[in-house]
Amino acid sequence: MTMDVLTMGTGFFSFGTFLLIHLIAFRRMAPEHLLRSLLTCVIAMMGLPILLMGIFYIFKLVDAALQAWVCAASLALVIQGLLCFVYVLCVFGPYETSVRMRLVREIAQEGSKGISLQDLLGRYNSETIVNVRLQRLLGSGDIVEKDGRYRVGHNRNFFFVFDVIAGVLKKWINK
């Protein structure tokens, strides 16, 4: 087995383990615990590729220098991190939070007879959107509530970081 295949395999295996834990532990998890638990799970699983590579190094699964093992562990970590990022933002995120996906499901429930706008808004509306999101954001600590007023909990959350990066990208694209 080459170091390249071992690195890739470790990255994918670690992600597979994350996915398995995620599928078991996140079933029926309340929305308010979702963001924080997801972040904790991703960070906790980051240690797995390093641990696996350490074990492989001890058992000398591949004959390579120490620097190659260090690089392999780092790259396996990068692959696992990227896979987690892509899964959370492109698969789980849209399922859990996308307005479009929810609309598709609401329309699908009515089958071929369809649904009127009034009925659709009766089931899913701005009120629902705000309720679910406030629950999630309060649970993650991104916002805090005191006497019925909401404030930002911490300014270094993912939404703001993503907004800054997207802002820079937008400037470059629209120049």
């Binding site: 998890m29 996906m101 699908a108 629902t128």
Partner: peptide, 29 residues
């Protein structure tokens, strides 16, 4: 005045149903 899914939309709905079965979570949104 009534919204219905096209065949493309039905495919997306089927994927979402599969995801709900796999993830075991309530409807998102």
């Amino acid at each position: 005045g009534r919204y219905t899914l096209t065949s493309e939309g039905q495919k997306i709905a089927a994927i979402l149903n599969f995801m709900q079965f796999t993830l075991g979570r309530n409807v998102g949104g």
